[in-house]
């Protein structure tokens, strides 16, 4: 069968199955607890207690299958050897802790974790604060937000051209090198310079995430009651005092949510490193190292151990983030 037709049929059948499930299960529930007869009131209450579970059941089941099961499977795998057949206990973890490349990844991840969320939030806040005051602010906002629409790999390709290096005696096509050479400097192979290459990779993610931070913070800034700002002006506060003492504290919750959301994203950073350096020249990060271990070296046990490390690091931030977001909405 033509694959397009097959796909269409699958979609239609899937939708029909969903509709049938929700209508059908609801119908059955109404038959079991009819809203008429002697126990109508009690039946309605019982049906209402059951109904949410009925409707959420498919989602819970699918999430369980694709999220919870892999976690346990990873835990199991992380205690197996390369062949995935022999149980080795905590051997993979022992290897991991002693491994130079893992330590480098952990250190790099920590650097990413400190620099990227801080800079993205800072630039986002500055952009949000400034674009609200100028007539071409919306155009500027669109431009700053646009990188959000580019995939990480796509962004990496763009930045590869910026950092590009073509040997000492060739014409430099990289934007950065052409600026450097036009100013009389020597071209550099930017992404091979230890430590600084890390920063150059982070710039890409900051470039992408600033737009996200800006949009959320801009909405938060607009939500600040205008009268509190006028009151502060009457109280003698200058623009900087108003910004730092009146505006920022009122959007502190949103800043925290933006910060932690980017933090979680950073912990999982993979694509950029994969596309730019593949972890060479001291730029390895956990997610890329996990991929490398599992699929290049073919050692799923070690890969899983690294994966679980990432998960353990993400969970507390995640919980804090969700709590903050809930508090914002309350």
């Amino acid at each position: 069968m033509n694959p397009i037709i097959l796909a269409l049929v699958t979609v239609v059948l899937g939708v029909i199955a969903c509709v049938t499930y929700f209508f059908g299960s609801n119908w059955v529930l109404d038959r079991i607890y009819p809203d008429t007869g002697p126990n109508a009131g009690r039946n309605i209450n019982r049906a209402n207690a059951v109904r949410p579970w009925l409707f959420m059941l498919p989602a819970i089941a699918i999430l369980g299958l694709y999220l919870v099961y892999p976690v346990f499977n990873s835990i199991w795998l992380s205690m197996m050897d390369r062949s995935r057949e022999n149980f080795v206990g905590l051997e993979n973890y022992r290897w991991m802790i002693a491994d130079d490349k893992f330590q480098e990844s952990l250190f790099n991840n920590a650097m990413w974790l400190i620099i990227v969320p801080a800079m993205s939030t800072l630039f986002g806040l500055i952009a949000a604060g400034l674009t609200d005051r100028i007539w071409w602010g919306n155009i500027a906002k669109s431009l700053i937000f646009m990188p959000m629409a580019i995939s990480f790999v796509g962004a990496s390709v763009i930045w590869k051209f910026i950092y590009d290096y073509r040997g000492e005696d060739q014409t430099q096509i990289g934007l950065l090198n052409s600026i450097v050479t036009s100013l009389g400097g020597d071209p550099q192979a930017w992404i091979t310079i230890p430590f600084w290459n890390d920063i150059f990779l982070m710039v890409i993610l900051i470039w992408i995430q600033t737009g996200f931070a800006m949009v959320i913070l801009s909405a938060a800034l607009r939500g600040i009651p205008e009268e509190t700002i006028e009151a502060a002006v009457l109280d003698g506060a200058g623009p900087l005092t108003v910004f730092f003492k009146i505006k920022i504290p009122q959007i502190a919750g949103t800043i925290a949510v933006v910060w932690t959301t980017i933090t979680i994203l950073v912990l999982k950073v993979f694509d950029i490193v994969f596309a730019m350096t593949n972890g060479e020249w001291g730029t390895q990060v956990l997610a890329n190292y996990m991929y490398r271990m599992t699929f290049i070296d073919g050692h799923a046990g070690r890969g899983s151990a690294i994966a679980l490390t990432i998960m353990v690091l993400v969970i507390p931030i995640m919980i804090w983030n969700i709590r903050n977001a809930l508090k914002e909405n309350a």
């Binding site: 009651p225 009268e227 509190t228 009151a231 502060a232 002006v233 009457l234 506060a237 009122q250 502190a252």
Partner: peptide, 19 residues
Amino acid sequence: PSKRGIAMVFQSYALYPHM
């Protein structure tokens, strides 16, 4: 405004919510 020697009570009170 701050040099005019005036103080204003706003309709919405305009209290600083974080203070």
